[in-house]
Amino acid sequence: MDERPAKRAARSGYGLELRGVSKAYAAARALRSVDLAAPWGSALALFGRNGAGKSTLLRVAAALVKPDAGEVLAAGFTLPPQAANARAATGYVGHRNMLYPDLTPEENLRFYARLYGLPDGERRAAEVLRDAGAERWASRRVRALSNGMQKRVAVARALLHRPALLLLDEPDAGLDAQGKAFLASVARAVAEGGGAVVFATHDIERGLAAADRYAVLQDGRVAAQGSAAEADAAAISDALAAPGGGA
């Protein structure tokens, strides 16, 4: 692993590619033969109701969940055999902030930097905290931070290892306007730097504005996808609101 993961990964076709991916949980099928691709240098917005499979899709892409069937290429690496490579090149922000409440943001990030084996861990931790605008809170316990500030630190955590593929699961939730602006700038920076961003959101207007492409998940399947510029936000929200839309 001498080369930076971003460089190595960028040689293969897509930032994220799913072919025929299915995953069933005890009660229901979360994903039903999903085909989806997010090209390098772009952002993909995922829309869908609660339970449509957005979170499962992102967790599969982050190698947190093993699919029952299908192929996943994350940052150009096949899951699960090349999971370690894929993990080193993927950043993920989930619903939970994945921070230890009794440690400070700085301690949290230094811990994760060591866990990822980053050579410049302490410097990098300070860097992402500054970018996230969380410098002032760096040495208070996470427990004492507001939800919005915790979320910013969580985003900083996902950026520690300079991921080529960034996966965001409803990242807007709990963020103030400033935090949303930070997040948008992060996503833009990753996409413009040649990486790929995939994010799930309920906010269709904002999502389309931030993305290059979009996909709509319904009932574990990709119901529609296309270019964000040509998408009709009203039609997408109508479809999601329709009685049969996501059940």
């Binding site: 319904q218 529609a224 329709a242």
Partner: peptide, 15 residues
């Protein structure tokens, strides 16, 4: 999309 979702509800178990 409406047509799509209708076909979802009646589609039988996948072979």
């Amino acid at each position: 999309m409406t047509a799509n979702s209708t076909s979802n509800t009646i589609s039988p178990a996948r072979p």
